[in-house]
Design a protein around this nucleic acid. Sequence first.
DNA 1: CTCAATTGGGTTAACGATATCCTTATAAAT
DNA 2: ATTTATAAGGATATCGTTAACCCAATTGAG
Lengths: 340, 340
Amino acid sequence: MLTMKDIAREAGVSVMTVSRVINNVPSKVSEETRWRILSIIKERGYVPNSSARSLSSRSSRIIAVVIYGEGNVLSYPYNADMLGYVNQYVQKRGYSALLYTGCDFHNMTRQLRSWDVDGAIVWGLYDSEFDRMRLDNKIPLVFTDSYSPMRQLTNVGIDDRKGGELAAKHLFGKGHREIAFIGRSNDSPVLRERLHGFRDALEKEGARLPEDRMLPDNPGEDSFRSFIASNKNVTALFCTSDIVALKVIVYLKALGLRVPDDISVMGFDDLEMGALTTPALTTITQDIELKAKLASELLFSHIDNPDTPAQNITLDVRLIERESVRALAHPKSRGKVVTL
Amino acid sequence: MLTMKDIAREAGVSVMTVSRVINNVPSKVSEETRWRILSIIKERGYVPNSSARSLSSRSSRIIAVVIYGEGNVLSYPYNADMLGYVNQYVQKRGYSALLYTGCDFHNMTRQLRSWDVDGAIVWGLYDSEFDRMRLDNKIPLVFTDSYSPMRQLTNVGIDDRKGGELAAKHLFGKGHREIAFIGRSNDSPVLRERLHGFRDALEKEGARLPEDRMLPDNPGEDSFRSFIASNKNVTALFCTSDIVALKVIVYLKALGLRVPDDISVMGFDDLEMGALTTPALTTITQDIELKAKLASELLFSHIDNPDTPAQNITLDVRLIERESVRALAHPKSRGKVVTL
DNA sequence: CTCAATTGGGTTAACGATATCCTTATAAAT
DNA sequence: ATTTATAAGGATATCGTTAACCCAATTGAG
């Protein structure tokens, strides 16, 4: 392996001079020497050793991206999109992204510490896991979509509650009164918020969302089938994710129910694929690229200046009306419509 | 930071003994000492420093995953899926995955070398870029879907040609004679192979695929519209990727054409979303998880034993018949059907 | 003309681990 | 009783860089 020593010898200088050239230390090396060294570096194709650099300078220029979840979390397009954008911003800053997925919490933090990462962007955790996370490290951390009660955490999230609200108002405005909610969860604060917003808005309009009108997130076909069978008068379904909405539409099709003619369906997330289906999915959209950008920028500002105070940013959401919700000629409809 | 020295001092041994415990060097430390050291390590939460380890042992336990492409390559579900699976296998082996995306070839190889990665899995490159890649490194490399002429490369690909063939036979068997091909490309060997297989099979059946029946990969809506306008008698479209197929279906819908009633569409890749649309997409499927698994295993066998000879594995593909292709009551149809 | 500041370097010691070579005590073999 | 082998561990150099401090020559101000 080519080392700084080789470059130094060839240039007839000390390794420190080479180091200073590489790190652009201002006014410590003459223009001429700098130029000579740079050309030797280029000619020889010398690349500094990051491990040594990291060991010596206590800065790895690595950002860890931690996606907590089971199985292949990247098969969920939201996670993949986020990772892709985050990675772009990380690379743009000259850092590298180390990827950690899974649920082995212990191993994850071990790896973070062993690599001495300069920072980490984390999502997919539930409340309870946060406590374990903060214990050990002084590593700058940015979370996304965390609803941790600890407010000294930097977080970038979306207005999940408003998302639920928008969905409820939209369905109500289209004349729907008998509505079901797919995505009940005790673990996920995100889903909980969406439910809250949805139910509250519905009740404010005068409709109700009883317990037996809710199904857990990602129900199997069988349980969905029996749910539909025992809720014949439901005219609309609000799913807390596009993937689930799309699956539900397939299930409905298998039951001989057409969307939106026989029953309306809404999603959440605005995955690219939702626009490509027939019917195209009416959904709540969030700006994933912006979220990734803000998360990265916040992380770097923490890295550059450790005194940066924790921030909690909530991004807005919007409703995207496409084809999967039908307007009902409901007698009691107030004709209320959410405009964008 | 807690170091080996701290552990050694507390255990009353030398750092080498601690090192031996950590690296499980057989029969160099007594059971009792090992146990004592391990408990101190656990109690103190000591984590070895990977940079130092890497520097000293010349092995980083990092695998780079290189996805060559523009923009957010992970928004393409195939890439995300592959990465997700590869990452799982990499983590299972105790390695970490460093992610590189983009087209800045020079920077990519620089990073690979600077981190002294133990190996890399690479995809998304075209022929011409390979030459630049092999130049510099002795790093074990595994490619996927490369059609490089250099046979000393280890590669895991799929039988793209057969995929094209299966598509052609299926469409022909369903009675289609006037067929168009969406996915012409001079750069991508993968798409070239799919075209080859498709065209050859079509011609073998007695049909033809003239130049003006081909559209480049991922055409815009306008060019697609005029293409359809000038090819009114086309009854089926074969797209070389599911994403494009889904987009095309949306374009067709906008033109007032129903799929498959008015025109049939086939995709390629079998992305999860293709099964969730209406109509569900008839497509060519490949086993992405298997591909990722084989690529990882091959890489590790190269890492464990540098003398492992290069291998080129081609995985089989299958046709998945769903709903986007209609059977034509074509007079000349031979009623040929591909069975799975 | 002298003194202080600046410019352009160099020297040495870390950083935290592993490699390599030693050492000692005990057991087994001759 | 001597040799040999093995088990259990230690000492030191080294991996490639940067941090911290040092030094000589030049420049500019007073």
